[in-house]
Design a protein around this nucleic acid. Structure first.
Lengths: 340, 340
DNA sequence: TAGCGACCAGAAAGCGGTTTCCCAACTAGC
DNA sequence: GCTAGTTGGGAAACCGCTTTCTGGTCGCTA
């Protein structure tokens, strides 16, 4: 692309080397057997002219452009950043690049952005799509090859790479239960987030497994300030008897912890707090944040592998659900003997 | 792109509407005036067939992609993430998408990655390129239109959008000086980082402005664990008389603070600490981190504006250097009366 | 009424590659 | 020595659009 003054084309190379375009193309792609002497001449001409084939022209005829798109609700979310990084590095190893499209949590634009992005690329990654399920199913038909991240879509012909939030929350509740907590607050995520729904299922299952536990839900969000703002509700729950908090993710947990510290509530003495995702900062908070660790980079890689298989016409590989690993740190502790 | 079974083409639409391809194209692009009745028919056919023009074919003839590439040393750096987000949103408003290429701090690959990325796109953003200046100057010639972020390149015909790290560090030193600090440690960044060099210039200037101040440099890095690992050196400096620390960036500062807290060093009572970038987490640390605020999103937007101007054949707009704003928070305080 | 622009739609020429198709030359077989 | 089979390279078609160029209509002026 671009205003480079009349970039050299394959025709120039052919003329310079005194052969046909077809031969240059064959040398470039190592397709058929070509006279070694011609190969030499062509290579020399290419080097001399500094020729680089136009990816666009190639794309047009090949029907592929070695680019995949990743559609994501919010590029500032560390989880998506990690996945993007993993995807980008893995794809680069195979000569692919990734295009990003941030929907800015705007549910209504998701479909159009996805369609448009898909058109420019060979395949699509839908990261935590927020749209209603019916719409998503319809969309997925249109944009194949596609891989979905962090949103279950049972029965669909699409690989889904995700995190087992249900199990993660259950593990977290188990952990808190082991520590003696019986009253827990769950600070929820964005209402449109499917992984929030999963977490709530986890809450429900945990309740079934622990009849002696009660879990209250308080509204939250997905970012630091959401957690910060949730402190009032959390404190209300605390006064009501809650001794531990599970936050939608680490950002919410960290924001909440900041506010609690300001208010003189000591973690974990007064209140245990756990997050989710194990973002880099989690291990550096004060106190260090107990969290469910999610292999962000590896998710990105797995997404790429499935994408590549699909692009190459392979079968729809099985979906995969990563079991998050409990990372016990200082922000959760055994319940204080008795509430004063 | 892609294996959609024989996607409908402009020829199909033309046939369906009973007009020529040229007319369909004209309707699509609103180029010349077309008989309203034909416009109707074409629109109807487009809708009925669900036709979407191929971006690739368009690119080939237009010589433009409506895509720009951003080359960045590390996608996990919050500064670059913020810039990417700002760039991506601003570009999207003009129908452009952005391609990311992570060089993984690999200096040797930078040039090739940049060239390759540029070929696929209409323009390039080089974020904090690490390569030697001579190489960068040569590269910049080849990949125009290009905008450089966070790396000064005096005299070059390239818009540079950056942060005034020199001034930022000076302001930070002024701030600490006001608080009574005379011995300061600077935890440095990656050796190949140009902005680290800028910060060091800031240190030098600050020293010239404050003859009564002494600043020791200790090696650091750019990430949380680099800061964490720098604690020994920082403590040595502290024992040697340093009462305040300026970290390369917030991540380093936060990592350092974590370690200091573990070691029982109280911030800011025992040691004042300041970071740079004002990442979202800075305001949520304990204590909240004093930092130099950098408008990440706006930088991304400004980059886009310059890029767009260049793409449209406009002049090389002036470079811009954002003066970071001092964000005084709890991690810096007046020096304790006298060291016991 | 003849003549001249203005206007609009279709045919066709690219954009820069890849690939098919075909022909020339060369090898091998009888 | 002649034909069948191989091999390698060039001409040309094609990918799906945009845009120029051409030709036919229409409306206006002289």
């Amino acid at each position: 692309m671009g205003q480079r003054s009349r970039a050299t084309t394959i025709a120039d190379v052919a003329a310079h080397a005194g052969v046909s375009q077809a031969s240059v193309s064959r040398v470039l792609n190592g397709r058929a057997s070509v006279d070694p002497e011609i190969v030499q001449r062509v290579r020399a001409s290419i080097a001399e002219l500094g020729y680089r084939p136009s990816p666009t022209a190639r794309s047009l005829v090949n029907g592929r452009n070695n680019t995949v798109a990743m559609v994501v609700p919010d590029l500032e979310n560390p989880l998506f950043q990690g996945i993007l990084k993993g995807l980008s590095l893995a794809a680069a190893r195979d000569g692919y690049r990734v295009l990003v499209a941030d929907t800015a949590e705007n549910v209504d634009d998701e479909q159009e952005i996805a369609l448009e992005a898909r058109q420019r690329c060979d395949a699509l990654v839908l990261c935590a799509p927020r749209m209603p399920e019916a719409e998503l199913r319809a969309l997925v038909e249109q944009v194949s090859p596609v891989v979905i991240v962090n949103r279950p879509l049972p029965g669909a012909e699409v690989p889904v790479v995700g995190v087992d939030y249900v199990r993660g929350i259950r593990d977290l509740v188990d952990h808190l239960h082991d520590l003696g907590h019986r009253r827990i607050a769950y600070v929820s995520g964005p209402p449109t987030s499917a992984s929030n729904a999963e977490r709530r299922r986890g809450v429900a299952e945990a309740l079934a497994a622990h009849p002696d536990v009660r879990i209250d839900e308080v509204p939250g969000g997905s970012r630091l300030d959401d957690g910060y703002a949730a402190s009032d509700a959390v404190l209300a729950a605390h006064r009501d008897g809650c001794t531990a908090v599970i936050a939608f993710n680490d950002l919410v947990a960290l924001g909440l912890m900041t506010r609690l510290h300001e208010l003189g509530v000591e973690v974990p003495r007064d209140l245990s707090i756990a997050g989710f995702d194990d973002v880099p900062m989690a291990g550096f908070a004060t106190p260090r944040l107990t969290s469910m660790s999610v292999p962000r980079g590896e998710i990105g890689e797995q997404v790429w592998h499935r994408l590549r298989t699909l692009i190459e016409g392979g079968p729809v590989e099985h979906s995969v659900l990563y079991g998050p690993r409990l990372e016990v740190r200082g922000s959760t502790a055994a319940i204080a003997a008795v509430r004063a």
